[in-house]
Design a binder for these strands. Structure first.
Lengths: 157, 157
DNA sequence: GGCATTGACTTTGATCATCAAAGTGACTTA
DNA sequence: TAAGTCACTTTGATGATCAAAGTCAATGCC
């Protein structure tokens, strides 16, 4: 992305300047949806991001106040990344990106996104944001927002 | 954007492959929010897009089934572009992009986005989609979705 | 303690997209 | 007919991205 920044004060343009490249939104996906937190985890993205672009984008997201990096207490080589409140505020954007994208990819058996989109949007976003604040994510791990929402549905039936 | 396409079947990735560049979402903004329809109108974007990138992106969006181009009946030079249903389905994404972006730009006096975001999200999206189907947009012109919603609010008070 | 592995990057060089500016050909208007 | 307008296309410089290799520090195992 070669475009000069600050080309306008339009909010949409600001979002495009932050996420309008090939990789930043995918990194946010891996962080907020799958619960990835380390450089190595992000590197193992489905789309095969390279180390130089990953390092660049993480630095940019950090500079923009969207993520923070914390050295690991148990391993001096490791850094963990997590979302700020500003990063968490991008969850509805991620939700809509996934929703729109579902119209363009083959629906796979047991696709979690399908189940997520069948739930109440407001409930999903609330549970997602809460899970992220507690160190979780939408889909990653047993304590995911999705697992909690599904358990809730099961408890009602 | 140099990334190979089809790097994964993830819906988010699909959306990124469609809109994850510096310009495509801004073109959608101009079409759906401001009601721009011609090459020349898009060229006069606030961000000063150039003719070669504009032509390339319009062709891409058309190829993806998001917009259609129609030769003008009154002027053989003119082409008008409008959104397909697939394009209209990106309205919630545009809404969330604007909403997130508002957290990063100075709030200006009489900013229409502020008024829009103060309205019920569901009402906004419905009115916006309907306006676009009828040839209108969110903010452009007297028959905009925003004007209609504002008149509704005024009628209630 | 030495060695192999791992973690987070950085470097390298080829490739490609983007940028700004100028140009093109067809159409419209005065 | 000449000038202006429309939707592009072309040109050449620049910078970002890509894939692969490398670097340095930390960890774990023998």
């Amino acid at each position: 992305m070669k475009r000069a920044e600050g080309r306008s004060t339009c909010p949409t343009n600001f979002t495009v300047e932050t996420f309008g490249d090939s990789w930043s939104l995918l990194i946010m996906r891996d962080l907020l949806t799958l619960g990835k937190h380390t450089f190595g985890e992000f590197l193992r993205s489905e789309e095969r991001i390279g180390p130089s672009v990953l390092a660049d984008r993480l630095a940019r997201l950090e500079r923009s106040g969207i993520i923070v990096r914390t050295p690991s207490e148990t391993d001096a080589r490791k850094v963990t990344y997590s979302a700020t409140e500003r990063g968490i505020a991008a969850i509805p954007l991620l939700y809509e990106a996934a929703r729109w994208g579902m119209g363009g990819v083959p629906i796979e058996q047991d696709d979690p996104w399908e189940a997520v989109m069948a739930m109440d949007r407001h409930d999903v976003l609330d549970a997602w944001q809460q899970a992220v604040r507690e160190g979780g994510s939408l889909l990653g791990g047993a304590e995911s927002a999705f697992a909690r929402l599904s358990a809730r549905v099961r408890a009602v039936v």
